[in-house]
C-alpha cells in the first residue's frame, strides 16, 4: 500500500469507527438511560422529551448510517481481502450489508410512520368517543415504536458481533 493509500485507509477507519460507535452507543443510551429516566417523569413531559430527543436521534442515526457506507465501501476496496475469493470475509460482509439495509429501513419506518403517529391530534370539537379512539391510536403507535426500536438495537448488537468476526478473518 502506498503512503497516500495508508493515510486514506486510516482516515476512513476513523470515520467508520466513529460512525458505528455513535450509532450503537446512541441506541444503547436511548434504551438503557432515557427509558429508565422516563419511569420517573410525568407522562406529558415524557411526550415532549421523546419528541425532542427522537428528532435529534433520527438525524444522528442517518449521518452515522451514511458514514458507515461512505467509509465502508472504500475500506473494502483498499483492504487485503478479495471479495468472492475469501469466502468467510465475503459472507460476513454480505451479512453486514444486509443488516445495514435493515437499519435504514427501520429508520425510515420510525421517521415517516411511527414517530408522526405518536402526536395526538385532539381538538375541542371532538366527541369523547373520538378522543378515546385518538388516544388508542397514539398508544398503538408508541407500542409499535418501542418494538421497532428494540429490533433496531438487536440488529446493532448483531452487527457489532459480525464486525468483530470480520476483523479476525
Amino acid at each position: 500500500m502506498t503512503r497516500v493509500e495508508n493515510i486514506a485507509y486510516n482516515l476512513l477507519s476513523i470515520v467508520h469507527a466513529l460512525s458505528w460507535s455513535i450509532y450503537a452507543g446512541g441506541a444503547i443510551c436511548m434504551e438503557l438511560i432515557l427509558r429508565h429516566a422516563q419511569e420517573y417523569m410525568k407522562p406529558s413531559q415524557i411526550a415532549v422529551v421523546c419528541e425532542n430527543s427522537g428528532k435529534r436521534y433520527r438525524w444522528w442515526s442517518l449521518f452515522c448510517l451514511l458514514g458507515l457506507v461512505v467509509s465502508g465501501i472504500p475500506l473494502v476496496a483498499l483492504g487485503t481481502h478479495e471479495l468472492g475469493v475469501d469466502r468467510k470475509y465475503s459472507v460476513l460482509l454480505a451479512c453486514l450489508t444486509l443488516l445495514w439495509l435493515v437499519q435504514v429501513l427501520l429508520l425510515a419506518v420510525l421517521s415517516f410512520r411511527f414517530h408522526p403517529e405518536m402526536h395526538a391530534r385532539l381538538s375541542s370539537s371532538m366527541s369523547a368517543e373520538e378522543i378515546k379512539r385518538e388516544r388508542q391510536r397514539v398508544g398503538a403507535a408508541i407500542v409499535n415504536m418501542n418494538i421497532t426500536v428494540r429490533i433496531e438495537l438487536g440488529c446493532i448488537v448483531l452487527a457489532l458481533a459480525l464486525g468483530a468476526a470480520l476483523h479476525l478473518v
Binding site: A24, G25, I28, I33, V49, W60, L160
Partner: peptide, 29 residues
C-alpha cells in the same frame, strides 16, 4: 473483541448521546 467493541460504543456513543441528544431534550421541559 465483541465485548470490547460493544463497551467502546456504549461509552463513546453514550457520551455523545448524553451531550447532544438528551441534554437538549432536558432543556425543553
Amino acid at each position: 473483541s465483541f465485548i470490547h467493541d460493544l463497551a467502546l460504543a456504549a461509552y463513546v456513543g453514550g457520551a455523545i448521546a448524553m451531550e447532544f441528544i438528551l441534554a437538549p431534550a432536558q432543556a425543553s421541559i
